[in-house]
């Protein structure tokens, strides 16, 4: 096999370990993309090509998987990714107001990244924390019972 240079030794080791859990290495594709994203923040075309080679798939097939999922970023994102739940229980409990506050304070719309590259704002579906609505994820960490004060405090804490 041609040597894979677009991935680090750590990435290759972690992906290979995941692939050993399955009859076929392709089954590790989501895990592999997430490993790349853990190290690089997002998944570039070069990474897709390299991972596909490692897992014995065509890059097109792997990209079909990558683009199917909401949590795989095929474009660069900010240093911090904020994902606000917009599903039904959070909507009833006022996530639209929270969203407006976030847009206001960050000066961006959903799907955008702040000019200083600090924050990307995205909507996300129900997080299974409906009893603590409205909620959002900040770099994967769940923040619950959101209101204006809480948003201000959370943003101030991200550096």
């Amino acid at each position: 096999m041609e040597k894979i240079t677009a991935l680090s030794a750590d990435e290759i080791a972690e992906i290979t370990a995941e692939a050993s859990h399955y009859e076929q290495p392709q089954a590790a594709s989501i895990e592999a993309l997430k490993i790349v994203q853990k190290y690089r923040g997002w998944v570039s075309d070069e990474s897709v090509k390299a991972v596909a080679q490692l897992l014995n798939m065509s890059p097109a097939e792997l990209d079909g998987v990558a683009t199917f999922y909401n949590l795989i970023f095929r474009r660069p994102v900010g240093k911090h990714v904020i994902m606000l739940c917009d599903s039904v229980s959070c909507w009833i409990m006022g996530c639209e107001g929270v969203g407006a506050q976030l847009r206001n304070k960050l000066g961006i719309e959903f799907g955008e990244t702040t000019a200083d590259g600090q924050f990307t704002l995205l909507p996300v579906t129900c997080q299974g924390a409906c009893d603590r609505a409205p909620v959002m994820l900040v770099d994967g960490e769940l923040e619950t019972h959101l209101d204006e004060d809480k948003i201000t405090a959370i943003l101030a804490n991200q550096k």
Binding site: Q26, A27, I30, E31, L33, F68
Partner: peptide
């Protein structure tokens, strides 16, 4: 096996495709 956020993966046959590393 951790997924990456798509509701249809909960449907059991889509889940199997997803687990195999295919579009779900």
């Amino acid at each position: 096996h951790t997924s990456a956020g798509r509701y249809i993966c909960g449907e059991e046959t889509a889940l199997l495709n997803s687990l195999e590393g295919k579009r779900a």
